[in-house]
Lab assay of single mutants.
Amino acid sequence: MFKRLMMVALLVIAPLSAATAADQTNPYKLMDEAAQKTFDRLKNEQPQIRANPDYLRTIVDQELLPYVQVKYAGALVLGQYYKSATPAQREAYFAAFREYLKQAYGQALAMYHGQTYQIAPEQPLGDKTIVPIRVTIIDPNGRPPVRLDFQWRKNSQTGNWQAYDMIAEGVSMITTKQNEWGTLLRTKGIDGLTAQLKSISQQKITLEEKK
């Protein structure tokens, strides 16, 4: 169930391209415009997507990853294993993690069937560096609404905000991946996880038929 919630949630996290980005210092504006741009692209490019579902990787690479804190999220997933990894191991892992996100997020976007969304009203940021933004996803086919909290983090150097995690039903996506990959990290280390991520990233994206 959580895996499905995570995939549905990713439908609204794909941010804007650099040329049309919203105010990078306001995570609420980023979330709002990102959702609108993403849904528009999914709707307008269905012919290309249906002809070649792996085209979704391109959308992810162009529109999402430049505005997601990939390395920060990847380091959180590694936890204690990050500090013990060599620079070469980290570089290989982050490259594999990025390719994994292209496949995983692309597969999530393949679930698009006309969903709509509501974003919580903007709250004062103050001096906060981590801000959760509640998004409610509404399914046109009558499924119950899904309420999610996207975690946005302020870059201490640039002042810009980027998304790095999502919490559904009190469970963090980062925590879920830590639990899912924990045994592999304990037995085969970061190299074993890197190899698995490379394998997963090679899987073809498949479209979910409308139910």
Rank of each mutant, 00 (worst) to 15 (best):
T25A: 08
G142E: 09
Y81P: 03
I49Q: 04
Q36K: 09
A88P: 14
L11Q: 02
L30C: 06
P121M: 08
I49C: 12
Q123V: 12
I138C: 14
A14F: 14
T58K: 10
T194C: 11
T183L: 05
I59S: 07
Y112I: 01
R143A: 00
G74T: 01
D23I: 12
W161M: 02
A35D: 05
F2K: 03
R41Q: 06
K210L: 09
V12R: 00
L78S: 03
K102E: 07
D127T: 11
L101E: 06
V12A: 06
G182E: 04
P121T: 08
N44Y: 08
A108R: 11
A120R: 11
V146M: 03
Y72E: 00
G159V: 12
Y105R: 00
V68F: 06
P121N: 06
S199K: 13
A51W: 08
L184H: 07
A85R: 04
R90H: 08
A120L: 13
T25V: 10
V12S: 04
V8A: 12
K102R: 13
Q48I: 07
L207I: 15
N52T: 13
I13L: 14
M173Y: 03
Y67K: 03
T175V: 08
Q89I: 06
L76H: 01
Q24F: 08
Y117S: 15
Q123K: 14
P140F: 11
P144C: 02
T175S: 05
Q69A: 04
D149A: 00
K211V: 15
M1D: 00
A96D: 12
D40K: 11
Y105A: 00
Q62W: 05
A110I: 12
Y82A: 01
R186W: 00
D23Y: 11
P124S: 12
G159C: 11
I13Q: 01
S201K: 14
Q24L: 08
T38C: 07
A51E: 12
A21E: 12
A18W: 14
D165N: 03
I119A: 00
L16E: 05
P66S: 09
A195I: 13
K43P: 05
W152C: 01
I138Q: 15
T194L: 07
K29R: 10
Y55A: 11
P66G: 10
R134P: 02
I49Y: 04
L78I: 03
D139P: 13
L30P: 07
M166Q: 04
L197K: 15
K177V: 07
L78M: 12
L197D: 02
A120K: 12
Q115D: 04
E208D: 12
I130C: 00
L125N: 13
Y82W: 09
E99C: 09
T158I: 09
Q151T: 07
E33V: 05
G79M: 01
I13N: 01
K128F: 05
V12G: 03
Q36H: 14
K83R: 09
T176W: 11
F94P: 05
A75Q: 02
P27C: 15
K204P: 14
Y93N: 05
L42M: 13
Y105N: 03
T136E: 15
L64F: 15
F39W: 02
I119R: 08
D139G: 13
Q151S: 05
Y93I: 04
P144D: 02
P144N: 05
L56A: 07
Y93K: 00
M7C: 04
K204V: 08
D32T: 11
T20C: 15
A195S: 11
G170K: 03
R50G: 10
A108V: 03
E122C: 11
W152F: 00
Q123C: 05
T129K: 10
Y81V: 08
T86C: 09
P53R: 10
Q162T: 05
L5M: 06
L184R: 08
T25M: 10
Q46G: 05
G74V: 01
F2C: 03
R41W: 03
A18P: 14
F97V: 07
K210E: 07
T183P: 05
P145W: 05
E180P: 02
K177G: 13
A22V: 12
W161I: 00
L30R: 14
K210G: 12
T194Y: 07
K154C: 10
